[in-house]
Each structure stands twice: as C-alpha cells, then as structure tokens.
Deep mutational scan, measured.
Amino acid sequence: QVATSTVRILGMTCQSCVKSIEDRISNLKGIISMKVSLEQGSATVKYVPSVVCLQQVCHQIGDMGFEASIAE
C-alpha cells in the first residue's frame, strides 16, 4: 500500500537545498518518490506507511537544518 502526503519545509533558499533534501529523503527505505517545491515551501512524498512514517521524514529534514512539518 502506497500513500501520498505533503510536508511543509521552512528554510529552503535555493535549488541546492531542494536537491539535498530530495537526495537524502529518496534514499530512505520505504520512500518511493519525493518532489520538493522551493516556491511552495513543501514536498510531496510518496511512501509505504508500513515501512516509513512521515515523522521520520520530517526528522531527517530537521537534521539537515530545515523546519519540516506534516501539512494538514
């Protein structure tokens, strides 16, 4: 089973930030795809909930120095 959710990301300033986040999160087990939008300050994450949760994704992004939260 696959889920798609949006994560809000604060602190991104350039495409390099976007690429860094996409590269790191895409390597997590259970992540199918991730598309980060600098303009919208968010990311669309396609993932397998039984393998990885959005809290883990937000935590990983937080470790990179950005502020991440699950969009309502």
Rank of each mutant, 00 (worst) to 15 (best):
E72I: 10
A68Q: 03
D63N: 12
S5M: 12
I25P: 00
T4I: 13
I9F: 04
H59I: 14
R24C: 06
G11F: 06
V7Y: 01
I32N: 00
S26A: 09
E39K: 08
Q1S: 07
V57C: 04
L38D: 00
L54P: 06
T13H: 13
V48H: 15
G41E: 14
I31K: 00
D63L: 15
G41T: 05
E22I: 08
I9P: 02
Q56G: 04
S20I: 10
T6Y: 15
V45I: 11
S20R: 15
M64P: 02
V57L: 06
E22T: 09
V7C: 12
V57N: 02
C53A: 09
K35D: 06
S69M: 12
V2K: 03
S20W: 07
Q60P: 02
L54T: 01
I21D: 01
A68R: 04
Y47T: 01
V45L: 13
I25C: 05
S26Y: 08
Q40N: 13
S50E: 15
S33K: 09
L38E: 01
R8S: 08
G41V: 04
V7T: 00
S20M: 15
M64C: 03
G41Y: 07
Q15W: 10
L28W: 06
Q60G: 04
E22R: 04
F66W: 04
Q1R: 07
S5I: 08
L28N: 02
C17H: 15
I31Q: 00
V2G: 05
I70E: 06
Q15V: 10
R8L: 09
G11L: 06
V57K: 03
V18N: 02
I21E: 01
T4F: 13
R24M: 08
T13R: 15
S26N: 12
T44G: 04
H59V: 14
I70Y: 14
R8V: 09
T4N: 05
L38P: 03
S42N: 11
Q40S: 12
A68D: 03
M12W: 05
V52P: 00
S69C: 09
G11A: 03
P49F: 09
V57D: 00
I61K: 05
Q55A: 11
V57I: 14
Q56E: 14
V51G: 02
V51W: 06
V7D: 03
A43Q: 03
S42W: 08
V57R: 04
L38G: 01
Q15T: 08
F66Q: 02
V18P: 11
A43F: 05
S5R: 13
S37F: 11
E39W: 09
V57T: 01
E67W: 13
G41K: 12
Y47S: 00
T4E: 11
I9N: 00
I70A: 08
D23E: 12
T4Q: 08
C17K: 03
D63Y: 11
V7K: 00
S33F: 09
C53W: 08
A71V: 13
M34G: 00
M12F: 04
K35W: 07
V52Q: 03
T4K: 07
V18A: 15
L28M: 13
V18D: 00
Q56M: 14
I61R: 03
T44A: 09
L54I: 14
E72W: 10
S69G: 06
D23P: 01
T6M: 14
S50M: 07
I31S: 01
V2R: 02
R8M: 10
K29Y: 14
I21F: 03
Y47A: 01
C14M: 03
A68C: 15
A3I: 13
L28T: 06
S20A: 09
G11V: 06
T6S: 09
C14N: 05
M34R: 00
A68I: 06
S37D: 10
C58W: 07
S20E: 14
Q15R: 10
R8E: 06
E72N: 10
I25Q: 00
G65P: 01
D23W: 12
F66V: 02
I21H: 01
K29W: 13
R8Y: 13
S50R: 06
L10S: 08
L54C: 04
G11K: 05
S37N: 12
D63G: 08
H59K: 15
E39G: 07
I21W: 04
A3S: 13
V36A: 04
L10D: 07
V52M: 07
S37W: 08
A3F: 15
P49A: 08
C14L: 04
L54Q: 00
I61D: 02
H59A: 13
L10I: 09
Q15F: 13
V2M: 07
G62T: 14
Q56Y: 15
V52F: 04
L54D: 00
L10K: 13
C14W: 04
K35V: 11
Q55S: 11
T13M: 11
S20L: 14
Q1P: 15
S16D: 13
I32V: 10
R8G: 06
S5Y: 06
Q55G: 08
Y47Q: 01
V52E: 00
V18L: 05
L28S: 03
E39R: 09
I31V: 13
I32A: 00
S26E: 06
I31E: 00
M64H: 01
K35C: 07
M64K: 02
S42I: 13
E39P: 08
L54V: 06
D63I: 13
A68M: 06
S26I: 10
C17I: 05
S5L: 07
E22N: 04
I61M: 04
D23C: 06
I61L: 10
K29A: 11
C14Y: 03
V57Y: 04
H59S: 14
E72K: 08
L10M: 11
V36H: 00
K29S: 10
Q56A: 12
S37P: 00
S37L: 06
K19Y: 10
I70C: 14
V45Y: 04
N27L: 14
D63T: 14
T4A: 04
M64Y: 02
V36I: 13
C14D: 06
Q15G: 11
P49I: 07
G65R: 02
E72R: 07
H59G: 11
E22W: 07
E72M: 09
M34Q: 00
E72D: 12
Q15N: 10
D63C: 07
Q56V: 10
S16F: 08
C58F: 12
Q40Y: 13
